[in-house]
């Protein structure tokens, strides 16, 4: 078969296989962050996941070397988030970040290490979908506490530093973890796959 720029069926199946692995890693990240930081698990989830799934992403990018793979992975991840009962916004976040990450990786023609690393960071932000309800739900928290007869000042104090602070924390933590995870992934791919001549 002559090489094309379009995604072929084998490409799609590879994407599916790697997405499944990525999904498993997200699940592991979900459980471990729930165990380590109960209550704040959604905030640290993108960071924990970015830390461990770099190799999957890098191998997919190295194997396909064409536009569309990362986008499709984002879309499929979003769909599985949705059907496994996550918030519908996670769908949008995954798709948007997947496509953006794909364009960035394409700019480095899927070879530039820095480009791939940067696109991995962006892709990791796709996992912010499950975090977003926290900001949607803030009103609901407050309304609920008011209905239970709590003092309004007290409630304001309770949430004042949670929102902006946690958001910034989540963004920075994800950036750092994605850089480490992506770097580790690239190192692993080089050590195990490039030398073996698989990609």
């Amino acid at each position: 078969m002559k090489p094309t720029n379009k995604l072929t069926v084998p490409d799609l199946i590879s994407i599916g296989v790697f997405t499944a692995l990525y999904f498993v890693l997200v699940t592991i990240a979900t459980f471990s962050s729930a165990a380590l930081f109960p209550g704040f698990n959604n905030v640290v989830l993108p960071a924990v996941c970015a830390l461990i799934s770099g190799s999957v992403y890098m191998l997919l990018a190295a194997k396909l070397q064409k536009f569309g793979g990362i986008s499709v992975m984002g879309i499929v991840m979003g769909m599985f988030f949705m059907t496994s009962g996550h918030f519908i916004v996670s769908f949008a976040a995954n798709i948007v970040m997947g496509i953006v990450a794909d364009f960035v990786a394409k700019a480095g023609s899927y070879k530039s290490r820095k480009g791939l690393l940067f696109s991995y960071v962006l892709f990791s932000y796709g996992l912010f979908g499950p975090v977003l309800p926290m900001w949607f739900m803030k009103d609901a928290y407050v309304a609920n506490l008011e209905a239970r007869g709590k003092d309004a000042v007290y409630i304001a104090e309770l949430f004042a530093n949670i929102n902006m602070g946690t958001f910034v924390f989540a963004v920075v933590a994800t950036l750092v973890c994605a850089l480490i995870g992506g770097w580790f992934g690239q190192k692993m791919i080089k050590k195990h796959f490039v030398k073996a001549g698989i990609v």
Binding site: V9, V17, T19, A20, V72, M79
Partner: peptide, 12 residues
Amino acid sequence: VIIIPCVTVVRF
């Protein structure tokens, strides 16, 4: 393009 990866995920 979306269906095939989805099926693969479930199967995998």
